[in-house]
Design a protein around this nucleic acid. Structure first.
Lengths: 338, 338
DNA sequence: AAACTTACGGAAACCGTATTCCGTAATTTG
DNA sequence: CAAATTACGGAATACGGTTTCCGTAAGTTT
């Protein structure tokens, strides 16, 4: 056999363990992986040797034989922003259970970087990809004919055959509408971001559906603007100046919601007394930053990430899922509605 | 030679490339890596074959021979929060230049998870670790006698021999003080977070130094509280009620700063007319959310991450750096000071 | 006690790539 | 034109594991 002694400064190999335990490499491997038929005494001897040398098997070497690397690539297009973080953490939750490690890559919306990362990760033989981004608008597929499965989280693929997990924007609008109606509001306005965002339209649809089912219509035209507090403030003023009668607002983000609260209060209106408000995102800092705290719709991004990771694991396991999955949103009630 | 044809559904190997090009594996390897002495025609033939088969060398296999994996572990203790993100992005910037991939692990402040991740990443033979967290208080070293270098970013190691890169809290306080004095303020109050945070004390020290150099002292006792807007509001009221004369406040976070602005305005004071304010963190959403926008101290966390990664690269390269490095903060002037 | 199982553990092949060494063919030199 | 270089590319080996195959020794059966 003639096995080597540990070389200082270099990682301990299974050969060193085998040498110390006085067995062959093959036997050592079996002992460490609880395979094959070995005497208990032999197993123990090997395990003790491994322990003593602080042996850690080289995953790269293992994966050479075994098809899988237990590694996935997580590609985010938006610099790890407010939206991708919960998705990322949710994904980590699910992957962790399978003791899978995550390569994180941030493309910063640059297709060239994206291409480069995909290449790099393919060289590392990741078992699959999760792709996420800031917006819920569809994006082009990562690449055609990749050798490993891909799941899109939050930002779906434009190809309907790909597996995508997204938030339920339509239901978000619906929940907001139902809640406001249930708490006695009848004249609901909708203040939101730029209308080029798909989410903006989908939420309107859900909101309108809720209203229609009670024989109501939106109070005034939809107010499109930016996703900012400043826009929320201005929109509130606009609403007050216009002759639109309204007793509540559904806001497309918590930032808009917070701005709207400020705008209303500055004009002497009370919340929720005169006007009730529902935001979107459940962003702690915005929602709790000011009195009254903001009732909001939580889009369950953590769950979006978790489901995406689960689908990826299934696909890696040979059980791919196709098409779009929508994760339910949740209403979180706070002080801005009653 | 007898080389195999590509097996469908399995990654293309260098053998397949060699077979297609009609050369041996060794020759194919040389051609692909621009090594050895080969006829140009042969190189081209191999490269063409690789191209045609869409060959990507297996990094795991490569790293088996070569000491290095071009991979580092990034361990964050705080669920990828507001503070670790810029650090992380800065690190990515620096690592990207070396085409190094990043394993991201989030320990969620759990030492057991941390231990587990370290083991996992060591098995994957990462070339080094970057450790980051939420607070600037020192933490215990990642582990003793790790076989690879570690650099701490933002959160320094308790062992002074370790390499840590941190923000300059003392200078942050100093800059705030100098700026307020330069703009004509003489009575500066300090509203901040819990005094168990090291950063709180260090900023006070810097602030006091600036004041002392102009023959001034802090206006009233330091107001310790939470890192929240609510505390900022309350602290403003407290200051107004107390008989402390003050014409400006240095706030330990932008959230506190924003709350303070609200508190002052609610009491009829103008900012910066009656009271000037400087915040800390340069958190866009807080700083720009409300008029007047907030002058603040940017702790250069992105740079902290970048430097940490650079030190790690150097250490991996055999040029380790020991001890603490402090990255300068920057004053960002906006409307809350004049 | 001879024949047959079973338990145990070693040898060897394999995973994908890089590298060292060496033989052969082509080219240059005397 | 023979001898000495040089150019080229194949074979072998190493990297760190896992797995298959097989031989030997021990235990069981009749």
């Amino acid at each position: 056999m003639n096995l080597p002694r540990p070389r200082p400064g270099r990682p301990v190999t299974i050969r060193n363990v085998a040498a110390l335990a006085g067995v062959s490499v093959g036997t050592a491997s079996k002992a460490l992986n609880r395979r094959g038929q070995l005497r208990q005494e032999t197993r123990d001897r090997v395990l003790a040797a491994a322990e003593q040398l602080n042996f850690r098997p080289n995953e790269a070497a293992r994966s050479l034989g075994s098809e899988r690397t237990f590694t996935v690539g997580l590609i985010t297009t938006d610099s790890i922003g407010r939206f991708s973080i919960p998705v990322l953490l949710g994904a980590e939750d699910a992957l962790d259970a399978g003791t899978i490690s995550v390569f994180l890559c941030d493309t910063r919306d640059d297709p060239i970087r994206e291409r480069h990362y995909v290449e790099t990760l393919l060289s590392r033989r990741v078992d699959g990809f999760i792709v996420t981004g800031r917006r819920s608008d569809p994006r082009p597929p990562l690449a055609s004919d990749l050798p490993v499965p891909v799941v899109y989280a939050l930002t779906p693929s434009r190809d309907p055959a790909d597996c995508s997990v997204v938030a339920d924007d339509e239901q978000a609008g619906f929940l907001a509408g139902e809640h406001l109606i249930a708490t006695g509001r009848r004249a609901i306005a909708y203040v939101t971001g730029p209308d080029r965002f798909d989410a903006v339209g989908r939420r309107e649809k859900g909101l309108s559906t809720a209203l229609a089912s009670h024989g109501l219509e939106l109070a005034g035209p939809v107010l499109y603007g930016e996703w900012s507090e400043a826009w929320g403030r201005r929109a509130a003023q606009t609403l007050l100046r216009s002759q639109t009668g309204f007793d509540s607002i559904y806001c497309g983000s918590d930032q808009i919601g917070r701005g709207a609260i400020e705008g209303l209060q500055a004009a002497g209106r009370t919340v929720p007394g005169d006007v009730a408000l529902v935001g979107t995102d459940n962003w702690d800092v915005m929602v709790e930053g000011r009195r009254p705290s903001l009732t909001t719709i939580d889009l369950s991004l953590h769950e979006v990430g978790r489901r995406a990771a689960q689908h990826l694991l299934a696909a890696i396991d040979g059980q791919p899922v196709q098409g779009l999955e929508t994760v339910p949103a949740q209403l979180i009630m706070r002080e801005s509605t009653d």
